[in-house]
Amino acid sequence: MAVLLPDPFEALFRLQQGLDAFRTSDWLQSGPSGAGSYPPLNVFRKDDDFVVIAEVPGINKSALEIEVKGSTLRIAGTKSVNYSEDASLHRRERLAGRFDRAVTLPVVIDADNVRAESRDGILVVLLPRAERDKPKSVRVE
């Protein structure tokens, strides 16, 4: 760690501050399962579209189930933690089990163009806003 590059670390720090600032907001509360359900989600905005990111370490792609309808996104799946038969546990911090979470976003989602990607234990769901839901600009005469 000889060279300190101020810019990239500052970018991360800004992100963390941004994340902290929203921590207490009740943006998703109206959904069927709001805050406090697994997996914890971060929602980002990218122009008109939304990006939902969740940490799902140890969950294989095949164990994830993602559904979109209207403006609701459902993330369900199973997380399993396996050990060999003859193992004795010294420390157990990882949790296993089923999860099923649905969140409602404040926009209508174009369900046909939703993309989901799971890599390195991070699930990224790209939710484009439906064309018919986008605001129309009105020209003042």
Partner: peptide, 20 residues
């Protein structure tokens, strides 16, 4: 270490966990 460049160009609107 997290590669936070993936978070560039997107703006947080709602969060439940921090990244580090």
């Amino acid at each position: 270490r997290i590669d936070f460049s993936k978070y560039e160009g997107i703006e947080p609107v709602y969060t439940e966990y921090n990244v580090g």
